[in-house]
Design a binder for these strands. Structure first.
Lengths: 229, 229, 229, 229
DNA sequence: AATGAATGAGCCTTCATTCAT
DNA sequence: GATGAATGAAGGCTCATTCAT
């Protein structure tokens, strides 16, 4: 992760379909390891071992560890978004949209499979930022954040740009991220947690209902306040 | 992080007013660095440099890096708890208790001062556990978790052991921890954040109101459901 | 000297004629240093300096200092045994066998050349044991000890399992090992020692004659005692 | 163990009979540790811990670790020699003298008690010499070596200065030192060894008889050779 | 006379990276 | 296109020693 230019970074390989993909195997293994360990704790040796490639392959294909990390991120970005989209339909009913958002967001964090890696990479990045964070924020988080803001805003009956909407969205996301980032503690304080898809969906559903209850109440309060004025 | 006993660890210095306390300077610097970087990323060299002591001083006073970490934790534990207590008064009103809890918990995480390091150490420990975590859970988190559970339970009208109470408490804590752990992202997505004591209290107040609204609604729902049966 | 498996240890290099063998240079230098200093006092820095390789090369090729040590041991074991074998021929005459054993054993300890390192490593291990000792005893010493016991037993006319044979063999080996392990003292008390191959053979011959005289006498005594009964 | 002069070394303490002897406690503990571990592996921390004195006490009383080692050596020299003397009586019978020497020498090496430390220090010094060795040789070993030579010479019927006598004496001592220095191996190859005083005396007796048998035979051979001329 | 505290050199190891096929 | 080998920086830790009471 040098700050200076990377003189030795190669472009994408000239013959991308060579042997079923050394490069792809690395991306796969790296996704796994980065998602599980974060950027810093992940080691290139571990990644190469899992990908069954030489340790120099990372440097050859990606330049350095950090560039690999970037590639991994954008490589899984598409899969993650396609599988667990966050969309806002102005004509749709607000509550189901929020429920869907919670479900997809939670799956992205807690499901063990590959498409979930993307969500986990972002979660990691929140806790342990790398220089990539700025790019992620610009290209990825901000748009989704706007979407979420609109969903929440529609539920709470306040403009997406309002402080109220922002705070509500923050509360909503915090509840879900906590369940992933702090799993080590949750599992110790409340032993016997399961992370089956069904149980994860129950978690998501609870967060949705908890938050919807809050949003409804706050919407009412906001209205009453407005009326009172 | 040896598993065997540490025969060489010293007790507190006999001449506490030696020269402003090398040992204390180390604890101070270590608190700073551990809170900011976490156990693994923190280096003893950095800590010693900040404390302006020789690198071997850590070995002398604490045995090794991990024992220093433990010591830092318990050193700031007292200050953190005294300053920002979490208590439950069975005779008190549930809602103010929850508001007080939110305020203290948030301060412990977001205030820039020293007594807040304790909260931050725990937050770090959640994201990047060390063997200390098991001890912390047993001696520190579990009791506080029980307290929080009771506060939440009193608000939602369900027994502290119920799944409902547990899920609500999880949601509550997640909202607050998120604001600390993911500050790097929040500050980028919502630029212009301030972390003055006043603003932190406002954050706490919002989480409290958001959650109280949810709890009230869930309490009603639970009751209605009970009646309906 | 980890107890766990060493996943990262490499097999012998695929391109053995790389540049005269970094790996071999390390083994050579390590043999030299370990034989001269013992495991603990030998430093990887010294070894790498002599081998003119980077200090991390040891980690790359062998995992850690202790694994290097093991490798050095077995690397020189073959040479040492092939060059200076210890065998027992049941049909052969006992006395020449004992003389040959003394000659080979002594050469293994005192000859300045490389094949003698093996004997010296074992001599070191006797004085300053490492965990490797248990392995050496099992895989290497015990078989040779049995051989020596049989040679001695044939000379003294007692079964190899008898206490007499064991004590005699111990005396025999002690005489030779002393000349290597305690060379520092011998050279000072009896200045002017030479360690030419010829002189070493004379040492061996004396130990053989000294011991044979003793064995013959003990054999006679044992017989007479047996007759007397 | 600097080679330069020791500027900070204190003379013996001014009030030697202060409190039952911090200094003596250090000597005692150091004897124990040095005898068991050798100079280099022994640590001042371990010694101070056993002596229950501050770690700086060694420096205060002895200057540095090496000077302590010297003091320990000469401190126990007297006790060792008095308890296990090596003497030669020109009028005495040679064989009992050799038996006595073997017994005393072996006790000095294998007995667990304090007076044996001195012998063990010397044995250590043989295997792992320090600069002290030269002094020991001059002041201590050489005289004893002469005595032993005379005993052996009287038994083998050759002049003490002869090569024969020297070689015989070397063989004799080697047998005994081996049993101490290489105990780690002996115990593994021949499990079940005991080191009771009685058993140690049996070891000594065997070495004596083994060597006496050899010496007698060599004496005869030497005579016959002389007659033949 | 004695000590707790502090020091600096040195050790083994790990890691991402780069060299030379 | 791919790899085994090699590198240098950095990290945690231990030790004998010295400082300042």
């Amino acid at each position: 992760m040098k700050t200076a230019a990377k003189p030795r970074r190669r472009a994408a390989p000239r013959h991308p379909a060579h042997d079923a993909g050394t490069r792809d195997r690395i991306l796969e293994a790296a996704g796994e390891v980065f998602a599980a360990e974060g950027f810093r704790r992940a080691t290139v040796r571990e990644i190469c071992a899992r990908a069954k490639v030489n340790i120099a392959a990372i440097n050859y294909h990606f330049g350095d560890k950090y560039e690999l990390y970037r590639e991994v991120f954008s490589h899984f970005a598409r899969a993650g978004i396609e599988q667990y989209p966050v969309t806002f339909d102005p004509g749709g009913k607000p509550e189901p949209q929020l429920r869907a958002f919670c479900r997809n967001f939670t799956r992205r964090l807690l499901d063990p499979g590959r498409p979930a890696w993307h969500g986990r990479l972002i979660a990691r990045e929140m806790v342990e930022p790398t220089p990539l964070l700025d790019e992620i924020v610009k290209s990825f988080m901000r748009p989704q954040w706007e979407t979420i803001l609109r969903i929440v805003a529609a539920n709470v009956g306040a403009p997406p740009g309002s402080e109220l909407a922002r705070r509500c969205a923050t509360s909503l996301i915090g509840q879900m991220l906590f369940q992933h980032n702090c799993r080590a503690v949750i599992d110790r304080v409340q032993p016997g947690q399961e992370y089956t898809p069904e149980e994860n969906d129950r978690r998501a559903a609870f967060v949705a209902e908890f938050s919807l209850a809050a949003l409804r109440a706050l919407r009412g309060a906001a209205k009453r306040k407005a009326v009172a004025r």
